[in-house]
């Protein structure tokens, strides 16, 4: 194991985060705060409680998941796409590193950033609404699991993308709708039965549901299923990454 290489890539990526602190941490915190003000404080006051939880508090896990999801994808995809675009990736590809080390460096850094972001948002949310965390261990677990999984997913997009437009298109056209329709803002039990069934094909439902369970002990989907589905998605991403390096897709001509 070339641990110096993992550390070098990780540090490089974290330094990039440091340089872009405003857009990578501050921007999502501000936009999420706006959600809390609009949905939590203004509209939330007129909403009924959901499963005994005030709407403002109900929103907290959903909004954090939404931000962690989108930021993981955006960070990880950008992290690997930029060196491909600028050509500096030659160095990584000619270095004595295995794909495991490359992935640990890039995805590890992106996931770290997402966990930091999620934690900051948790603290920010506490300033707007009152909530408790019933299962802090599971909460942290889901946060890390989601960060890693979607950083992997972003890494895949960053290798697949052949232009900045494509880099944006998957997050914009697929992930954002899935996240919005994944129960971030509502409980899927509020939907008509048909749409409840359709929603179960949306992987984000399981992430949000599991995460919300760790806060309030109640969820749309049984927590074991949430956990299982998230792990399944993680496994799927790992398989794709393995295949990318196995075949050299878009990396080795």
């Amino acid at each position: 194991m070339n641990r110096h290489a993992i550390w070098a890539i990780y540090r490089f990526e974290m330094a990039r985060t440091g340089r872009t602190l405003l857009q990578s941490i501050a921007a999502p915190v501000i936009s999420t705060s706006l959600y809390f003000i609009v949905f939590g404080a203004a509209i939330g006051a007129r909403m009924e409680q959901i499963d005994g939880v005030s709407y403002g508090a109900f929103l907290v896990p959903g909004l954090i998941m939404l931000a962690v999801l989108t930021e993981s994808i955006s960070n990880a995809s950008f992290g690997i796409y930029m060196p491909r675009y600028s050509g500096t990736i030659y160095e990584v590809l000619s270095a004595p590193v295995s794909f495991v080390e490359i992935v640990l460096g890039y995805v590890g850094a992106a996931a770290t950033k997402s966990v930091i972001l999620g934690s900051i948002m948790l603290v920010t949310a506490r300033m707007f609404v009152d909530f408790t965390i019933l299962h802090p261990f599971w909460m942290a677990g889901f946060l890390v699991l989601t960060s890693v999984t979607f950083s992997l997913f972003g890494f895949i997009i960053g290798i697949w993308a052949q232009g900045f437009e494509r880099l944006q298109i998957v997050p914009m056209m697929i992930v954002t709708p899935l996240a919005f329709l994944g129960g971030s803002f509502y409980s899927i039990s509020m939907l008509p039965p048909f749409w409840q069934q359709v929603t179960l094909f949306n992987p984000v439902v399981y992430l949000v549901s599991g995460f919300r369970w760790s806060f309030y002990g109640s969820a749309d989907v049984a927590v074991a299923i949430s956990f299982g589905m998230t792990c399944l998605f993680l496994l799927g991403c790992l398989l794709v990454v393995w295949a990318i390096f196995r075949t050299g897709y878009r990396l080795w001509p």
């Binding site: 070339n2 110096h4 290489a5 070098a8 540090r11 160095e91 270095a95 004595p96 590193v97």
Partner: peptide
Amino acid sequence: RFSRGLFG
């Protein structure tokens, strides 16, 4: 420093 680390 990055390059040195990358090469182990």
